[in-house]
């Protein structure tokens, strides 16, 4: 109908407030849903743009550390002289393969381990010796002796785990910093750490193992 058919008094009432009220009454759920979707998209975009660079990605499985992950992250970044505002260290200590009665938790930990290897985002992993040797069969561990810059770690042969002529791991009890964190203290088994075969940051992985083999300050 033509606007002229309406009385002037009514036309004066069609202002932006009334239009907003109309939109809210008829389309509020669409507006809210659109707002939420937009907020999620903006959040992901901002998170992607402001994401810190990962300096090192480590999984210490079944380690039962006495300190928090944040403490271990901070200690490494300080030792490596990396700016915490630009870099982050991802050191996971809560995963368990054995030593828990929850099969679901074990399966979830294994899924996390496998997906990070598949993503080529995992650099160093530590676990109990029996689990470590299980994964050695599928070529999970890089040969430490073949990595440039690993001479420091190879000085004490007793602390190394060898398999098929390759140095695949280093025992946790030979790493003073790891003992300082309270990791792998179970007397029935030894913990072993190794570099993942497809790690993109092998030099950083070796630097982390060097850090763990250093003496703690306190």
């Amino acid at each position: 109908m033509r606007a002229a058919a309406f009385p002037v008094s009514i036309m004066k009432k069609i202002n932006w407030k009334n239009e907003l009220a109309y939109l809210w009454i008829n389309y509020k759920w669409f507006l809210l849903a659109g707002l939420m979707v937009s907020a999620a998209v903006v959040y992901f975009l901002l998170a992607a743009l402001t994401q810190k660079e990962t300096a090192i990605s480590v999984m210490l499985i079944d380690c039962h550390a006495a300190v928090s992950q944040e403490t271990m992250d901070r200690d490494y970044l300080e030792a490596a002289e990396l700016d915490p505002k630009s870099f982050q260290a991802e050191i996971l200590t809560g995963l368990m393969f054995s030593g828990t009665d929850s099969g679901t938790y074990t399966m979830t930990s294994l899924s996390r381990f496998m997906s990070d290897i598949g993503n080529e985002s995992l650099d160093v992993a530590g676990m109990r010796e029996e689990d470590f040797l299980k994964y050695a069969g599928s070529g999970t561990w890089a040969d430490l002796a073949a990595l440039p810059g690993s001479e420091n770690l190879l000085k004490a042969p007793d602390s190394l785990l060898m398999k098929d002529g390759k140095t695949i791991g280093i025992y946790a009890d030979a790493l003073p910093m790891l003992r300082h964190y309270g990791c792998y203290e179970d007397p029935d088994t030894r913990g072993v750490l190794g570099v993942i075969y497809n790690s993109r940051r092998k030099d950083e992985a070796l630097r982390y193992l060097d850090f763990l083999s250093s003496m703690p300050d306190s």
């Binding site: 079944d62 039962h64 928090s68 992950q69 944040e70 991802e90 996971l92 809560g94 368990m96 030593g99 828990t100 929850s102 679901t104 938790y105 979830t108 930990s109 899924s111 996390r112 997906s115 203290e185 179970d186």
Partner: peptide, 29 residues
């Protein structure tokens, strides 16, 4: 807690079920 455990690394980003897992123990603790 499966997907949060697979995709989240930082403790500050955990959901409630993942946060509860820290109270699960083993023979040492």
């Amino acid at each position: 807690y499966f997907y949060p455990m697979v995709f989240i690394s930082k403790k500050a980003q955990y959901s409630l079920p993942v946060g509860m897992l820290q109270f699960l123990g083993d023979k040492e603790n």
